[in-house]
């Protein structure tokens, strides 16, 4: 057991927990964008930063990664923390001016406009990497990646072409915190990442429910016969 304080409150935690987990359990609100329970932390978005004081030393750390430590004092809204958080939000607002998620978070921190020139080529992507990770680790296909570096970094399929590996499952869409990824189901066809997928029709209710490629992928992985997978979840 590790004991320390968050904003003056005494808290206890297991040895390998992160500050973010403990803080959230204890009811402290720390905003995050790139953190996900199932996929762990990368420390990309820098919204979850907190101040950790140990004696005379103070550090600003990402709470999603920083392991709890006995005797430290954690502050979730110190002036330095707020400076970083507000700056990050203002920068993201300039990057993704049309993202409702960012607008909302920024507003919560008192930021309604950005001093920087607004980007018009980044969509709503904040490069949290969650889509890439869910595709690789949750779905297991690794169709997506980050390309380039610095300001040119983006989430994409290789060469921005329809990917052989993508099964059109839409897990990336579901996990994206800002709604950047475009997916459309129309007339039995799903369009995502520039690729068109034929949707399977449920033999019982006759409704389209999932891309054929996705069902085939599941069939191969799990050994479940295709006939069973064709039946949609509501008819099962």
């Amino acid at each position: 057991m590790v004991e320390f304080t968050i904003n003056g409150k005494n808290v206890r935690a297991e040895k390998d927990e992160t500050i973010l987990n403990v803080a959230r359990r204890e009811g402290f609100d720390i905003p995050t964008l790139c953190y996900n329970d199932t996929l762990g932390s990368d420390g990309r978005c820098r919204l979850c930063m907190v101040e950790v004081r140990k004696g005379n030393r103070k550090r600003i750390v990402t709470s999603c990664l920083y392991p709890v430590e006995s005797g430290v004092e954690v502050f979730t809204e110190s002036p330095d923390v707020l400076l970083v958080r507000k700056t990050v939000l203002e920068l993201l607002l300039a990057r993704c001016p049309n993202s409702e998620t960012i607008q909302y978070l920024a507003k919560e921190h008192g930021i309604t406009k950005t001093r920087y020139m607004k980007d018009n080529d980044k969509g709503k992507c904040i490069l949290c990497n969650l889509c890439v990770k869910t595709c690789e680790f949750n779905v297991g296909v690794a169709a997506l990646c980050m390309s380039g570096k610095g300001p040119l970094k983006k989430v994409t399929t290789p060469y921005s072409e329809p990917s052989h590996d993508c099964i059109g499952c839409g897990a990336c869409v579901a996990i994206c915190p800002t709604g950047h990824i475009y997916m459309e189901d129309k007339d039995g066809v799903r369009t995502i990442w520039n690729k068109r997928f034929e949707l399977a029709r449920c033999p019982q209710c006759n409704r389209y429910h999932a891309p054929v490629e996705q069902l085939e992928f599941i069939a191969t992985k799990s050994g479940t016969p295709m006939e069973q997978l064709l039946i949609c979840p509501s008819c099962k």
Binding site: G43, V88, L92, M146
Partner: peptide, 8 residues
């Protein structure tokens, strides 16, 4: 390009 403050 990994973290926001540096990249942006």
């Amino acid at each position: 390009g990994k973290c926001t403050p540096c990249r942006e």
